[in-house]
Each structure stands twice: as structure tokens, then as C-alpha cells.
């Protein structure tokens, strides 16, 4: 990740083949509220990029912009050199059709703070839903793959359980399996452990660590500084809608360059 500065005016990062995500000059307004104030960052293939910052800093909003759950007000976001949400023709942006946006999202898995498992479907059905309904995969094949994924997150014995019968940590691991079922190249994690009891956090983080080791490109919004330090390849500290500081997690945590980063870290560590 190369997102050094706080202002929007600096030179955009140069596109390279290994950049899976490129975010350039992104602004976001919610009405009058200026939530993102010129964000530039890149995420390389296979990189684990951790976003931290106080609540209201815009980190979750930025994450949600990457798969177009939020529309950006200015700037550009590319995933795999494909412009997210728009088509640029003769210097003009055209909104993509919902069908095309859905197609872009298939390559980007997302895990939510509140899990958002489908309540009327079992763990297995949750994981099978998108491969069968979106990719048109054969049901038997989708079931086999779903069971493999549930096994991978340590929940093969929970396949027939409904979300309401699972603990928060188990639900979140099913949610990770559900996202992985679409074979995404990029995984977005929006505070995946914030809604969990402290003793359940470790299970989810372990699954995420495994995923990182397997080479998945991940963008993780979290308050787990320990996870950032151990698993993260880059750490980006956001505050007030701008990137304050970014770099190697161990360096940033041990030796923050900016006063705001220092004061934030002193509170959460």
C-alpha cells in the first residue's frame, strides 16, 4: 500500500500489474457531511491491508465503497483494473447497470460486523445460496464445496443449524465461508469481530489468519491491533476522512510518525 499523504492533491499511485485495488482521490458526502476527504491507497495482490481509526473516521465507508455498497462522490476505485460502479467513455462517467455491478461484486467477498447471515437458511444453505443462484452452479457440487468451506472454518458439524442456533463467532465464520464460496479474489472485512463476545474473537481471527496465509488479498477494518501487527502487511490509520499514516504495521505501531496516530494507539493498546 502506498498511501502516505493526508491531502488529496498529490500524485496518484501509478498502476502496476500487482495492484488488485486502486483507490484514487475518493471523496464521499452523506448530504452535507464530508465523510471521505480524498483517499488514495492501493492494495497489492495477496496483501493484507488493515484499516484502523476512531469511529466516524470513514474506514467502514471506504470499505463499502470498494464493492459499491456506497457510491463515491468523487475519485475512482479500480479492482483488478476494472473501474467500480462506472464506465468511462469519452471522458464521461456512465453508471453501470445493476447487472454489471452485481457481476463486479461476485469477485469481491464481504464480511459484515453484524454477520448478516440469511436467517431462514441453515449454515449450509447460506454458503450454497450464491454459488447456486448467482453462478448457476450444480446443487450437488455447491453442497460439496460448501461442506468443505464449513470444515475449513471449523464448523462442519454445524451445517444444518440455523444462524439463530449459532454463537456470534460461529455465525461470523459461516459468513466468511459464504463469502469464500464465490471464490473471490478480494475479501473485505468490516469490523468482523466488533460484535462478538471477547472469548469468541479468537476463533474468527484464526480463520482470517488462515485465509491470509493462503494468499488471499484482504482489506480489514478492525480494532484488533494485535491482528494488524501479526497478520497485516500494511496498516493504514484514518481519521476525519483522510489517511493520516500508513506503512508496515510493526513500524507504525511501534513508532508512529503522526501525533494523531500516537494518541489513538495509546488509547487502544
Amino acid at each position: 500500500m502506498s498511501a502516505p499523504a493526508t491531502n488529496a492533491g498529490h500524485a496518484a499511485p501509478s498502476p502496476t500489474a500487482t495492484d488488485l485495488v486502486r483507490i484514487e482521490g475518493v471523496h464521499k458526502y452523506f448530504g452535507e457531511h464530508h465523510v471521505l476527504r480524498g483517499i488514495d491507497m492501493t492494495v497489492k495482490q495477496g496483501e493484507v491491508s488493515v484499516l484502523i481509526g476512531p469511529s466516524g473516521s470513514g474506514k467502514s465507508t471506504l470499505l463499502r465503497c470498494v464493492n459499491h455498497l456506497e457510491t463515491i462522490s468523487a475519485g475512482r476505485i479500480w479492482v483488478k483494473d476494472e473501474l467500480i460502479g462506472y464506465r468511462e467513455k469519452a471522458g464521461k462517467l456512465h453508471e453501470l447497470h445493476l447487472k454489471e455491478i452485481a457481476a463486479q461484486r461476485r469477485n469481491i467477498g464481504m464480511v459484515f460486523q453484524r454477520f448478516n447471515l440469511f436467517g431462514h437458511k441453515t449454515a449450509l444453505e447460506n454458503v450454497m445460496e450464491a454459488p447456486v443462484q448467482v453462478k448457476g452452479q450444480d446443487k450437488a457440487a455447491a453442497r460439496k464445496r460448501a461442506l468443505e468451506l464449513l470444515d475449513r472454518v471449523g464448523l462442519s458439524d454445524r451445517a444444518k443449524h440455523y444462524p439463530a442456533q449459532l454463537s456470534g463467532g460461529q455465525q461470523q465464520r459461516v459468513a466468511i465461508a459464504r463469502a469464500l464460496a464465490m471464490d473471490p479474489e478480494l475479501m473485505l472485512f468490516d469490523e468482523p469481530t466488533s460484535a462478538l463476545d471477547p472469548e469468541l474473537v479468537g476463533d474468527v481471527l484464526n480463520v482470517m489468519k488462515d485465509l491470509a496465509k493462503s494468499g488471499m488479498t484482504m482489506v480489514v477494518v478492525t480494532h484488533e491491533i494485535g491482528f494488524a501487527r501479526e497478520v497485516g502487511d500494511t496498516l493504514t490509520f484514518m481519521d476525519g476522512g483522510v489517511v493520516v499514516e500508513s506503512g508496515n504495521p510493526r513500524d507504525v505501531i511501534a513508532n508512529p510518525q503522526q501525533e494523531r496516530t500516537r494518541s489513538f494507539l495509546s488509547k487502544v493498546l
Binding site: R152, V153, G169, R173, V201, L205, N206, V207, D210, G226
Partner: peptide, 18 residues
């Protein structure tokens, strides 16, 4: 690592932190 080992849930979090 993904297994629900007894004690794993409680142990893993603090381990990472420390």
C-alpha cells in the same frame, strides 16, 4: 487454526495481543 479447540477461543485472542 480454524478449529474450535477447547480453550482455543479464549486463548487465541490474548495470544495475538501479547
Amino acid at each position: 487454526n480454524g478449529t474450535a479447540i477447547p480453550g482455543g477461543p479464549t486463548a487465541a485472542g490474548p495470544t495475538i495481543e501479547e
